[in-house]
Simulated scan of single mutants.
Amino acid sequence: MFEGILSLFRGTATPSETPLPPADVQHALGALLIRAAKADHAYLFEEIDQIDDVLAARYDLNPVEAAKLRASCEKLEEAMPDTAELAGILHDAIDPVEREATVAAMWSVVFADGIEEEEEDKLLHEVEAILGVSPDVSKRLHDQAMNARQRGS
């Protein structure tokens, strides 16, 4: 045990790495929500809280389960640089109604901090196109999320 502690100070300890979560629908959705939150180069408590709420509601999870899923999704989001690949997982696995719900959830995360940045807008439009959500529907979902945030403020 003492050698293990010393190896930490010497820099010779090998960090134990947590394996990546599977790139399934739940994790892909969580990763996209996280990517939307981080698009403006800030990952704020309000956004994290909104992600947890979305995951809890979407997958019938309690708050602790939702937070654990989000933490797992954070690892996947960091490991998968290609947004199109994440969105493609969802496109292939969910129906059009769920695709729209996914876009609505992403907009709710974008507006969680009360500010819509250009980077967030660009990311959402990329995901909408991959998911096959029309610009008209996307605009309606955007406006609904923005109005919900303004009413909640």
Rank of each mutant, 00 (worst) to 15 (best):
D136E: 15
A66R: 04
Q26N: 08
A101I: 02
Y59I: 09
L6K: 11
A145H: 04
E74G: 05
I48Q: 15
A84L: 10
G88Q: 06
I34W: 01
V54T: 06
I5Q: 11
D49W: 12
A57Y: 09
A87T: 03
A84E: 13
E98G: 10
V133G: 01
I34E: 01
R149Q: 15
A23Q: 15
S108V: 05
S7D: 14
L90I: 03
L61P: 01
H91G: 01
A87Y: 01
A112D: 05
L6R: 07
S16P: 05
V133H: 02
E74D: 11
V54P: 04
D121Y: 08
A66W: 02
F45L: 08
A67M: 13
Q50C: 12
P135G: 05
L32W: 04
P15I: 06
P135H: 03
F111N: 00
D52S: 10
D113L: 07
S72F: 01
P96C: 00
V127P: 00
L86H: 05
E117P: 00
R35C: 05
L32R: 07
S72N: 08
F9Q: 10
I130V: 15
K122P: 00
L20P: 05
D52Y: 09
R99K: 15
E128T: 10
R70K: 09
Y59V: 09
E116D: 06
I130L: 12
H41W: 13
H125S: 02
N62M: 07
G114W: 07
I34D: 01
L124K: 00
S153R: 15
H41Y: 12
G11A: 08
A37I: 03
I34T: 03
K139H: 08
K139C: 01
A93Y: 07
A39C: 11
P21T: 06
D136H: 14
K38Q: 15
I89N: 02
V25F: 02
I34C: 00
R140A: 12
L6D: 08
R149V: 02
A129Q: 13
G30C: 03
D82F: 03
L29M: 10
G132I: 12
K139W: 02
E77I: 04
A104L: 06
A56T: 09
S153T: 14
L69A: 09
E46N: 14
E117I: 01
H125E: 09
T102R: 08
A37R: 00
I48M: 15
D95Q: 09
L123S: 00
P81L: 10
L131P: 01
E46S: 14
E100D: 10
A112G: 08
Q26V: 06
P21S: 05
